[in-house]
Design a protein around this nucleic acid. Structure first.
Ligand code: SF4
Ligand code: SF4
Lengths: 140, 140
DNA sequence: TCAATATAAGACTATAAAAGTCCTATATTA
DNA sequence: TAATATAGGACTTTTATAGTCTTATATTGA
C-alpha cells in the first residue's frame, strides 16, 4: 500500500545521479548512460527525462555529446515535486485530489478530518526530501 | 498519489461507526445499516465486514437482529492494521514489500535508504491513528 | 555535406490492481 | 418455516501502471 510508481523512482534516480556526477564529469548526462547504469528500459526513461525537461527541472541539449543538466539547484527539487509530476497531487483520499467533491460518503464521512491531517504530515515528509538530501546519503 | 483504497476507507468508516454507536444502541450493528448511512454499495461492504470478522476485528452474529460488534478495543485497532488487510504491507517502494528482491535497480539504487526511512515514518503515522482517536475527532 | 547521435512527441499495447456485481449456502430468530 | 443476516466464491468492469513502437527534429564532428 501507499506505493510510489516506477516513473517517479526512475526520475529520482536520474536526478540524483546527475546531482552526484554532473560536476565530476563536467558535461551533459545522456539518457542511455542513466538507463544502462540503473537497468531502466531506455524508451521509458526517455519519456521521464522529456517530462522533467518540459517541467523545467532539466535543461536539454541535442546531438552528439548532448544530454541533460539540472536546471534547478538540487536543494530546490523535492520528492513531492517529482512525485506530483508523475502521479498527480498527493491525496491519501480522493476527496483531497479533486476540486469538485464527488465522493458519496463526503457528507457523513467520519474519517476525512484525520485523513486530511495525515495528508498534511505526509506532504511535509516529502518536501523535506530534496535531491540534495538524497544525494548526501549516497555520497562516497 | 499515495492513495488508500476504498475498501480500507469503508472498513474504517464501519469500525468508527461501530465504536461511536455500539454502546448507544446496545445491540449488534448490521451491514445494511452502515451501507445505507454512508452510501456504500451493500455487497462490497459485506465483503469488507466478512474480512474484518475473519481477521478477528469483528464478532459476527447470524440471523434476525444479527450483525457485528467490535472484537477488540477501539484503541487497539490502528489504520495501519486495517490498511494492511485490504492493501497488503506498507511499502513506498516494491523492494520493501517482497522478501525476495526482484528490482533490477536494487544493487545500484540511490534512493532505497532514504525511502526506507520514509516508509518507517509513514508507518509510525498510521500506527498512531487508532479507531478510538478517529472517533474522538468526530464525537459530538 | 552527411552520417551518427541524442532529444521530442504521440500513439499504441499489455499487465495488474481496484472497484463493483452476482449467485448460492448457512445460521438464527420470531 | 419464512424472513433476515452473515459467509464465501466467481465473475466483470474500470482504471492505473508499465512498457513499446514509430517518426520527427536538432546538433555535432568527421
Ligand atoms: S469523503 Fe471520506 S470516504 Fe470520501 S474520499 Fe474523502 S475521506 Fe474518503
Ligand atoms: S531498489 Fe530502489 S528502485 Fe528498486 S524498488 Fe527499491 S527503492 Fe525502488
Amino acid at each position: 500500500m501507499l506505493h510510489l510508481n516506477r516513473k517517479t523512482e526512475y526520475a529520482l534516480l536520474a536526478l540524483e545521479h546527475m546531482c552526484l556526477k554532473e560536476k565530476e564529469k563536467a558535461r551533459h548526462i545522456n539518457t542511455r548512460e542513466v538507463a544502462e547504469i540503473y537497468h531502466i528500459p531506455y524508451p521509458l526513461l526517455a519519456k521521464v527525462m522529456q517530462e522533467l525537461s518540459r517541467r523545467g527541472f532539466l535543461k536539454s541539449l541535442y546531438g552528439v555529446n548532448g544530454g541533460y543538466v539540472l536546471a534547478k539547484k538540487a536543494s530546490d527539487i523535492t520528492v513531492a515535486d517529482i512525485a506530483q509530476i508523475f502521479e498527480g497531487p498527493l491525496a491519501v483520499a480522493e476527496c483531497f485530489r479533486d476540486a469538485k467533491i464527488t465522493c458519496p460518503q463526503w457528507n457523513d464521512c467520519l474519517i476525512k478530518d484525520p485523513f486530511y491531517e495525515l495528508n498534511r504530515k505526509l506532504h511535509e515528509l516529502l518536501v523535506e526530501m530534496t535531491i540534495e538530501n538524497l544525494a548526501m546519503s549516497n555520497a562516497s
